[in-house]
Design a protein around this nucleic acid. Structure first.
Length: 556
RNA sequence: GGCGCAUUGGUCAAGAGGUUAAGACGUCGCCCUCUCACGGCGGAAUCUGGGGUUCGAUUCCCCAAUGCGCUACCA
């Protein structure tokens, strides 16, 4: 009968390195005390959503806040899922939101000494460690067919016991206890029949709660986790020779010297497997950070739902095409990531978000519902902090990529910057810019190309509109200052029987036709086509006298 | 079905065995001598339920309910 060592040799006769050699090739990193090494491991499905960004922020902050390393590893162990150009999409989408990697896969090859950073290129490494497990008798080849496995499952369901392949149900697990089986295994390997490598779990199947051994695992978000012993003989190397996630995670994060593994809470149930694998290989466990999932309200009723791949507003591209500024999305994510961020921001309105000390302890362990109102509010404040000229440039590049129909807006960039800056430097700055598409609509009246009359005159002053506009035009002096300008409006109002102050009108409505607000609204509509806008005088200064006169005349 | 995680207003949430249970968004009202925005003031609105432990529990324990997840040779 074959020994474990001979079996391992038979399965993997020619691997270029030993596990010890790999250990030496990827030594512990020389980093300052407390530096954290994190990684993002997307699978190249070509779809990134807010949830991915959310996790990526945690990785990025943890690493860069501690002078550590943040790297990108492509987890493409599922050949069925590969989507063309997905890697490029991942990199550019994340870069757009200012997620920068220090190491790993880039568009022009790998960077860093701990590669290769693409799992599908690491086959030999995984097999080497699988071989080590085989040698140690901690793994075994399994020839169970799909049909056999489903037959086992059915039987387990009938017996109401845990489904899966594990001691008592796994024929090949104890191949070395049976002469005939050992011979079968040997000959099937020699004849190159397909098989998988399974972990030979040391856990006790279906032990009672009291009998189940438990491990304490550190989770930086959830505190100490009590993890039960694993007993499932999970597949670690698939028929194709490619590892499953479980095995790749353990091998890679050890060899790449990851200190903090940030991943979604959906991984919590498989933590026992990873704990056993780390133990089997004699490696130290990383610190886990299991993040809560971002959720949204489902259209069916108002129940909570997972951030499904199909929800367009959860896709990163949605925010880019709507024209949300990356800094705003970042700011929003930070507010839901760390409960004390808003407080910090209030105290440090001008500081860069990088100065905020992000901590995993302040992260919530229950899933947050995505809140568009909140994003919009955060965005208003964020845009206020961005210089108008810079904002104009950013809008231009947004338009070029997503909305070329607005090209006329960018004909005069100085003019655009003036428009965007309207009221932003007052003692109480206006905050009405939210995202590019909204801004395009918001400033549309400045451009003849997009100027439309959407509101009608207020009932109180509709009959007098022509008189009002005629008198306005006659008395208009473009060089008036704000005070002189408004005095003229007041004069028109009182001459025509309107109250100079809205309060007076409210107190004695029977004495007036309306108040000065109604009069100014007539002018506002003639000039802007809408009843609400920032200060008319300030707008006129930006519009220029010619446009002002032309628009008023058009209403006479 | 089994297992895991979660559960403070509509949303994000702070919080401690004894609090008037913060704050933000949203919403409603008022004010800010033109609208809107900004800002200010104020209002409505929360500890999932049931058992324990305790002088006292929203806070600790148990059970239940609900939500989400895992239960693949997907990640």
């Amino acid at each position: 009968m074959l020994s474990n060592r001979e079996l391992a040799q038979l399965i993997y006769p020619s691997l270029p390195h030993t596990s010890e050699e790999y250990e030496a090739m990827y030594p512990e990193r020389q980093l300052p005390e407390g530096a954290r090494v994190t990684r993002l491991g997307p699978s190249p499905t070509g779809f990134i959503h807010l949830g991915n960004l959310y996790g990526a922020f945690v990785d990025e902050r943890l690493a860069h806040q501690s002078d550590g390393v943040f790297f990108l590893r492509i987890e493409d162990t599922d050949d069925k899922r590969f989507v063309e150009n997905a890697i490029e999409t991942i990199i550019t989408s994340l870069a757009f939101f200012d997620i920068r990697f220090d190491e790993g896969v880039t568009e022009s090859g790998d960077i860093g000494a701990y590669g290769d950073y693409t799992q599908s290129h690491r086959g030999e490494i995984y097999r080497t460690f699988a071989r080590k497990l085989l040698e140690d008798g901690l793994a075994y080849p399994c020839f169970l067919s799909e049909e056999e496995i489903s037959a086992i499952r059915e039987k387990q369901e009938a017996e109401k016991t845990s489904p899966g392949i594990y001691a008592g149900w796994s024929k090949y697990r104890d191949w070395d206890k049976d002469e005939a089986l050992a011979a079968e295994v040997e000959s099937r390997i020699r004849s190159r029949e397909p098989f998988v490598i399974r972990l030979k779990s040391r856990g006790v199947p279906n032990a009672s709660a009291e009998e189940t051994a438990r491990h304490t695992v550190k989770d930086a978000i959830r505190g100490e986790l009590s993890v039960p012993d694993n007993f499932q003989d999970v597949v670690i190397i698939k028929q194709t020779g490619i590892p499953t996630y479980h095995f790749a995670h353990v091998v890679d994060d050890h060899l790449m010297r990851t200190t903090h593994v940030v991943r979604g809470e959906e991984w919590l149930p498989s933590l026992p497997i990873h704990v056993e694998l780390f133990e089997d290989l004699g490696w130290e466990l990383p610190v886990y950070c299991h993040t809560a999932q971002l959720m949204k309200i489902g259209e069916d009723g108002n129940k909570r739902k997972l951030s499904k791949r199909k929800d367009p507003e959860l896709s990163l591209d949605y925010y880019r095409s709507q024209g949300y500024h990356p800094a705003a999305v970042r700011e929003y994510l930070l507010t839901i990531l760390n409960s004390n961020y808003e407080e910090w921001r209030a105290a440090n309105p001008e500081a860069s978000s990088d100065e905020f000390e992000f901590t995993t302890e302040k992260m919530s362990s229950s899933g947050a519902l995505f809140d568009l109102d909140k994003l919009n509010d955060v965005s208003k404040g964020t845009l206020l902090r961005i210089d108008a000229r810079e904002l104009a440039g950013w809008l231009k590049s947004w338009s070029e990529e997503f909305a070329p129909e607005y090209s006329y807006v960018f004909a005069d960039m100085d003019h655009l910057a003036d428009i965007l800056d309207l009221g932003r430097h007052d003692a109480r700055p206006r905050a009405d810019l939210i995202y590019a598409r909204q801004i395009m609509d918001y400033i549309s009246y400045f451009f003849d190309e997009s100027f439309t009359r959407q509101d009608s005159y207020p009932a109180e002053a509709a009959d007098d509109s022509e008189v009002i506009l005629r008198r306005y035009l006659e008395s208009y002096d473009h060089s008036d200052d704000n005070g002189a300008w408004f005095d003229k409006i007041r004069l028109i109002a009182t001459d025509l029987g309107y109250a100079a102050k809205p309060k007076d009108f409210r107190k004695h409505p029977e004495e007036y036709k309306g108040h000065v607000g109604h009069v100014s609204t007539v002018i506002r509509i003639a000039l802007m086509g809408r009843a609400t806008s920032p200060d008319v005088w300030a707008i006129q200064q930006i519009m220029g006298e010619e446009t002002v006169r032309r628009r008023i005349e058009a209403c006479l």
